[in-house]
Amino acid sequence: MRLLLQLASVAALVCSTSLAPAENATPPKAATLRVAPDFTRKGLDGKSVHLGSYRGKVVLLNFWATWCGPCITEIPKFASWQTKYGAQGFQVVGISMDDDAAPVLKALPKLRITYPVVMGDVHLSALYGGVLGLPVTYLIGTDGKVVARYQGEANLVEMEQKIVGLLPQKKAP
């Protein structure tokens, strides 16, 4: 188990090299985040995921884990929204807080996740005020500002209404 802890620390240090300067500042309080902290990570599909590159889109940033029951309940809905609203300027990004990637890679096809997923670490967690309970979901506006934060299992009907209201490109009548 000590080995796991050491691996987590090493992974965190390695990943920290690609982070924005904001990460070096005092960790913000999660509830007071105004602008979504930027980050770049390698996605589980091998492609780079840079949050800032989604500026202009509405982003749903979801911290989750394979062992988290409420997370698994929500994810199929997020995947369906990606399909439904993707062309209207909507993007889901998943951050897995699993301790290693193996169970996540196994879960992706079962959950029908087609959006980018990256592995979380202590630095990414700190960047968002310390992720100390799952799920946590941020809705980020087209300007990069945090519109809403959902801790625990969210009201998905309400969340979808909010997303639709924020979409930059409305569906053609």
Binding site: A8, W67, M97
Partner: peptide, 21 residues
């Protein structure tokens, strides 16, 4: 979760591992 323990934990507490695994 080891990641959550590393993020914050009770001083003096020991990490053991996920009880569900």
């Amino acid at each position: 979760s080891v990641l959550m323990f590393a993020t914050a934990h009770i001083p003096g507490s020991e990490y053991v591992g996920p009880g569900g695994k």
